[in-house]
């Protein structure tokens, strides 16, 4: 199988931050037949291999792109790497800790402390201001209010939204909302940032600008981003291409970082 081989990490010799070994994720289309369903001979729902025996290692500081067409398994693989979903088979480890060994509560805490997620559709809380959105993870960490506001304001200023901190998402453009989402993902200073189609909802020019800013504020953090857009993937150190849930090619890029 194409994806079964472990991806080499040429750019960094230190131990990987995230490792996936023979990771498979299978979804069932429809519900399982119940007792009566089995008696009357209802068949098992068809299974879909969203991710199929994928193995990869991501080194600290790397920017890795996941490329592929829609339905190729990019987003599912991101969810598995972030611990949002559990693999059907295989293991996902973060700094050598198997995420499957953690309880749901511990995985949630793990995301809070180690992972920042940027969604394609921003997923900001409409009822909170930009600053409150960014500061929300710090509330969970028990950071005092003054410190929360200070850190969120600084980050928003760095990303060019200093004059928009009190605006709600509905009052911001798509590009501004994505900047807020990026700031929110970075506020806890995570070791790994995961971005799912971060420019998918933006026009080309805005998308490029956001990517540059993202790379700048990420400051050598490990980033895994999924995109089907070639221009977006250009900021990556290497790109892993997926098709039908399996890795087809790996490509290390010349990147000016």
């Amino acid at each position: 199988m194409a994806g079964a081989a472990t991806a080499s990490v040429d750019s960094d010799s230190s131990s990987p931050i995230v490792t996936a070994r023979d990771v498979t994720k299978v979804y069932k289309r429809g519900s399982e037949p119940g007792l009566i369903g089995r008696i009357v001979g209802r068949s098992e729902p068809p299974a879909v291999h969203a991710v199929d025996s994928v193995s990869l290692e991501i080194a600290p500081g790397e920017i890795v792109g996941l490329a592929g067409s829609s339905g190729s398994g990019k987003s599912t693989l991101l969810h598995l790497l972030s611990g949002l979903e559990q693999p059907t088979a295989g293991t996902v480890s973060f700094r050598e800790t198997d995420l499957a060994a953690l309880s749901a509560r511990e995985r949630t805490r793990h995301r809070l402390e180690n992972i920042g997620i940027v969604f394609q559709r921003f997923h900001l809380l409409d009822s909170l201001s930009a600053r409150a959105n960014v500061a929300l993870p710090l509330v969970e960490l028990g950071v005092p209010k003054r410190e929360r506001r200070k850190r969120a304001t600084e980050l928003l200023e760095r990303i060019g939204l200093g004059d928009r901190i009190t605006h709600r998402p509905g009052e911001l453009s798509g590009g501004e909302q994505q900047r807020v989402a990026i700031a929110r993902a970075l506020i806890t200073d995570p070791a790994l940032v995961i971005a799912d189609e971060p420019t998918g909802e933006l026009d080309t020019a805005t998308g490029q600008k956001i990517l540059e800013e993202f790379k700048q504020v990420a400051e050598n953090r490990t980033i895994v981003l999924a995109s089907h857009d070639q221009e977006t993937l250009e900021i990556c150190d290497r790109v892993i291409r997926l098709r039908d849930g399996a890795i087809t090619t790996r490509q290390t890029q010349e990147v000016n970082r």
């Binding site: 972030s82 949002l84 749901a104 509560r105 949630t108 805490r109 793990h110 995301r111 809070l112 402390e113 992972i115 997620i117 969604f119 997923h123 809380l125 929300l136 993870p137 509330v139 969970e140 929110r184 806890t188």
Partner: peptide, 16 residues
Amino acid sequence: QQQLAVLSAMGLSVRS
């Protein structure tokens, strides 16, 4: 539901 899922993805515990 979606906002709760976002909160969970961000790391907010179920208790929170």
